[in-house]
Simulated assay, not measured.
Amino acid sequence: MIRRIAIVAATTLVGVPLLAGVSSAAKNDQLCTSGEFCLFENYEYNEPDHRYDGHTRQWTTGDRDYGDNDWFNSNDNLDNEASSVKNKNPCTVVLYQHPNFSGAASAFKPGAWDPYLKNNNIGDNRASSHRRFC
């Protein structure tokens, strides 16, 4: 009986990191909710005319290369396409110009929003990766 419990416990512990990795991915649903870091294709969070149209992408963790990410509900790649950002994540998130967290960078503290990335270091349509700092 003790041996069986140890095997189940070991299996459960081995599964925890895998489950944590799966559950840490944000549901990509065009909504930017608590705990998420969100990119928007257009300035002002895709709402220049106070209507929601355009591409979005959300994360709860970092991403070292946007080259393998598409915008929500689209086959359009988001690499070098973001124009605005919301950080509803509890950590500071740094957005980088190049994959693997390199190049020009801009940091967004928890709760920070930027309606037009052109006005900071990362610039408009230049983001390729981001990393969380907690």
Rank of each mutant, 00 (worst) to 15 (best):
F133S: 14
W59Y: 11
A25D: 12
L39W: 11
N121K: 08
E47Y: 01
I7C: 05
S23F: 15
T56I: 08
A82D: 04
K88W: 09
S83E: 08
R64D: 11
Q97T: 06
A25M: 06
E81Q: 15
L39M: 06
A82P: 08
S24V: 03
P115L: 06
N87V: 07
P99M: 11
H55N: 02
V16C: 09
N69C: 06
A20S: 05
V16W: 09
N120G: 12
Y45S: 10
R3F: 13
A20N: 07
Y96N: 01
Q58S: 15
N125I: 04
G103D: 11
D76Y: 02
Y45V: 05
A10C: 10
G21Q: 11
R64K: 14
G111Q: 06
L18R: 01
F37D: 12
H98E: 14
K27R: 08
S102W: 06
G35T: 05
I122H: 04
A26I: 01
R51M: 03
A26E: 09
K88F: 13
L31K: 15
C91V: 09
H98Y: 12
F40Q: 09
Q30L: 02
G54Q: 08
N89I: 00
N119P: 00
G15L: 10
L78I: 13
R131M: 10
W71V: 03
N80A: 01
A105N: 02
Y96A: 01
V8A: 15
A20C: 08
N125L: 12
S84K: 01
N100G: 02
N80I: 02
P48H: 03
S34F: 11
R64Q: 02
G67A: 09
S106H: 01
L31P: 04
A6W: 12
G103Q: 09
L117K: 08
